[in-house]
Design a protein around this nucleic acid. Sequence first.
DNA 1: AACTTCTGCAACCGCAATGCG
DNA 2: CCGCATTGCGGTTGCAGAAGT
Length: 545
Amino acid sequence: MTPLKSLLVFGKICSTLLIDSYMFVCHVCVMKMSNMTSESEERINSPNDEASSERNMIGNGTLKKGPWTSAEDAILVDYVNKNGEGNWNAVQKHSGLSRCGKSCRLRWANHLRPDLKKGAFTPEEERRIIELHAKMGNKWARMAIELELSSMLLAKIGMLESRVSKLPGRTDNEIKNFWNTRTKRRQRAGLPIYPPDVCLQTLNDNTQSQNMGTFPNGDTSSSHPEILPNNNFQIPAVEFKNLGLSHELFAPSLLDNFLDIPGNTLLGSNFLFPISHPPKRIRRSDPSYPIYDGGLNDIFQYEDSSFSGSHAFLNGNTSSSDPISWATKMELPSLQYSSTQKMGSCGAPSSPLPSLESVDTLIQSALIGHQKSDNRNSGLLEAVLYESQTLKTSNSKNSNSNSNSNDAAAACSSDDDDWEAYGDPMSPLGHSAASVFSEYTPHTSLDEHHDQSLEAISVKQEAAAAAAADESGGQQLEREDNDMMMKYCRPDLLLDSPWFGGGGGSTSTSNKDHCGLLIDPLSALFPDDFCNVSSMPGPSSPFDV
DNA sequence: AACTTCTGCAACCGCAATGCG
DNA sequence: CCGCATTGCGGTTGCAGAAGT
């Protein structure tokens, strides 16, 4: 062992001992404090906390409110390490902590959990949050879960080694605070809450959904109004008239409040037409929504659970991700978009979201286009699932369809070369994505309005970018990275990447190994689909290159 | 330096869903 | 089925520090 290694090991041992000692001392201090026998030690740690602790005592004086002290934290951490999470009301009984169970749970979840990421949000995280909020509204807990799940999936399939960074451990409270702060800030600056590109994504998605007679979430049960962004990102009253709606549909005050918000640029279709009232919460016990507790494999252990052939944990089809639920509560509107990258490749301001969510949403549109109106959002898994199903029918499709699709995609793309390069007709996903374009790209009067909106929004975007210095960094970054991230936003490119056995059509065995990264858990989840896919002969199989 | 205002964050509260006897 | 306990979510509030005057 080299001296350097020895030093490192020694340092690690010392730090461990120090932490343990500190924990023990803190524990002792708080035990004393809780018995009201001595307060001196606690004052050393946090004099201000102790000064306010008495006035924060509630009830019979055994429960404390207000900021947590480091000693209390230590007790709680110690307790959870020994007993695990849950049964929070027992914490007070067994640890001597003068906090109610609710407070303990909150403190643990928001501050003491070891897998938390603290610090300022990165631009990428901000993008993800904006996108998620546009998608699902004020569903902070679900947003936090989606952030974490997507990062885990990326890790699993190896994309972490690419440009996509991990987004671990943000709490719902953190996301909520971030969003509220950001909203206030943008309101003050007179900026739209949602970036124009997100609006455009929603517009495009809704347009496509209309053409398909479906909502972005796949609902086909009711008609819905045209959702078009306004140039100045305000909701004009005329929209309500055009929609055949009256203000009486809404409580006037609520509507006024809603319209007062500068960033309320769009009315998601579901916002106006609530369809269902899904369960509000996701429980740990819900088999369709597993909670990650440390290992990625935990995601995939639900193969035996009740979400047959689905991956509800990713898309949250259980419920509240369905934007309708929040819409009925008149929360800030999400934009209900789902197909992000199509817009980006159609020359409109492209999506700034080089994330799994982007993959997600693009595939989702494909799913919709293929009558996958099962009210699910999409995820990477669904992307592959969808592709597998596409493959099953690929033989029945004529080659003309392929060429047309690719032509349409190429004509639509703002990056023709890239599209041509990745739109390999032999690439099933290239075919699929292109098919989506050709089959479902709207050719209605909406196009005209769409183009006008794009132009107007483009101007607005520039003005907003100039005015919003605080946002400019992120948006600029988004534009700069867009090309580079394109391949990670498009499933065809993604699946064509080495991680999915593509790599420009090379036929190395390592590609198969990479494929295994994804196929293994997926085949465990959906044995039928993946047996079929993997057993398909010839180059039409996405993983048999 | 003192005071006021602003901002962001941590924590609380109310409510609803779920678990369980 | 009912009622109680527990858990979790989303909205709101209060406080501490930063920024401005």
